[in-house]
Design a binder for these strands. Structure first.
Lengths: 189, 189, 189, 189
DNA sequence: AATGAATGAGCCTTCATTCAT
DNA sequence: TATGAATGAAGGCTCATTCAT
């Protein structure tokens, strides 16, 4: 249904600008050029619409690295670098809306759920990548390491993307890469 | 004025439980045992009250480490460990309300401001600490390193505190300490 | 058209459960397995459907006693008893829906009309029965007597059927029969 | 609070005319010359308002006969007559609204409750009256007799008051009195 | 004859805020 | 200073009804 998509588009637009709480169902419907009745025929309520939106975003943003496509002999530092860049790219899609997601997920477990699932998926994915380098890793607890790096990268990228406070983005990425590589591997260049 | 404090207490209590948006001014006044008129004589509006609340919290939570009180020959790993613990302790104070802060600060720059200032302060503070160890540091960009570590620690502590998802808290802290120490210093014990 | 009947059946089912006001046209159509468009092609609106439903019910429920079939020498008390039982039986058909009718007929004269007609018919019928016993009756105003008895029996049966409040049904029927018989006839057995 | 009373008055006026379902909270507030906010500060919702209205009405209408005030040697027929007249008078107060009560009480047990209580009270009251004449009564089951008469009188009065269908009110009352007196007492004049 | 997506008036309710006392 | 009754804009949501297909 294209109407449904129109509603979703309008919702992302408005919520990105004003936030979830300040965007009313009626406003979304109007922005979408659709009646409020139509709105409620496609979505049980505003919450449900929001959840779909989040799920959609994560559908697009997930799987930061496709392992299969990596050259076999790629240096580890490049992988880490690549990973960070991918997270950055993910944050560039619907930036403002993703910021709203971050905010709301803090506010109710109901909203949190989808994000949690997403993060679990990503942790798993990254664990797999690290598993490839098991020999060279300093730590044996790959899951914890994955979680740590994921949280770290997400936080830094999030902060730089949303709260840009005069930091040198390039410099931060380099340092972040250093930190992760040194943490993970014995011999660092 | 003690009435003002009563209102603040009530607000923290209610917002911690229900969140900012679901807590109404009238409810706060009632919980505080004060008339709604009194509420508005002390605070321009709900937003203003909230801002004061946040400022109060950060007043209490700031200054994670008092450098002066550290023994001169303390190992670097212990300092990092200490720092992380302090951040944890900070999160234990009005936990639920701080979570609300984290959420709202994402939502409007107006709310964000106070937090930004707070973070800048902390970065400065941590830079000073690192300055003491300049010789032994791998990086020369102390400000970026400070920022990086700050962001990382905050994020991990926040996530563990609020989104406990079956992670091993102890293990995470150890790994986190490792990561930071290895990142900062050449020869690690 | 069988579709029309399906709609009627669904309507009775739903209105019996939820009442007229809480049952929406869309819901009826869905329950009937028919589109809302079809619904409106058979019935001008919900009201019209309801009226047909009531008319149907009264068509089934009317004519409590078929005079022709009574034995000539049946005792009057038996006739009264028979009448009461018949009214009871009438109430057992689509019980919940009839309760709804009783309720709605109170609410608008438009709804009331059909029921009024029904009652007039019944009064006439009962007058005829009483006419057979004119000699033995205490009253000469047969119409008023008929109306009185009809109203009384309906009310008692209705109350017992719908508002059962710990009353002894059997006892009430016996007393009711007594009351009517004594009222009507001089010498009672 | 006079505002509360204004709201109640407006509600009775409007619900009498249009019925409960077709009368909206906003309309009541407007009719009462009061803001919708005020409406909701006095009543949790429309239902609650309605319940208060019913309770008020029954408060006024209850206790059809004050036993104490009857002359000791009053003939039984006069008592019955008096009772019927009192019920009539009760029905004359807020007639249309009482009709609405009758309708709604049929529709949900929640609404029914208050009316049930009312009826139980009345039955008890009438039992007491009958108890005074125990010697002369034909029946020993005074409660059932009370219930029967109450239901009968209510139904007839209700029907005559609300559904006046060209009946001779005076004649009906006389016949009704006859019926009850003959039912209750052995020797009737 | 049948469909069902679409409509939008209108209902119920909340809550930040004011102001006369 | 303090009170709290009063306000009314605004939001979420339902449902009878229409109409293009």
């Amino acid at each position: 249904m294209e109407k449904k998509q129109k509603i979703k588009d309008a919702a992302i637009r408005l919520m990105s600008e004003q936030g979830y709480h300040k965007t009313s169902s009626n406003e979304i419907a109007k922005e979408a050029g659709v009646s409020i009745g139509t709105f409620y025929s496609y979505f049980k309520d505003k919450k449900e619409l929001y959840k779909e939106l989040v799920a959609d975003i994560y559908g697009v943003v997930t799987s930061p690295i496709d392992l299969e496509e990596l050259p076999a002999d790629i240096p580890v530092r490049d992988i880490v670098h690549l990973y960070i860049s991918t997270v950055f790219r993910g944050h560039e899609y619907e930036t403002a809306f993703q910021r709203e997601i971050a905010s709301l997920s803090e506010q109710s477990d109901e909203f949190r759920e989808i994000e949690m699932q997403h993060k679990t998926n990503l942790t798993q994915l990254f664990s797999n990548i690290l598993g490839q380098y098991r020999e060279e890793l300093r730590t044996e607890d790959i899951r914890t390491a994955s979680y740590l790096i994921l949280t770290t990268v997400e936080a830094v990228v999030h902060d730089i993307t949303f709260h840009k406070g005069g930091k040198n983005k390039k410099a931060v990425i380099e340092e972040l890469t250093d930190m992760i590589v040194r943490y993970l591997f014995r011999e660092t260049v």
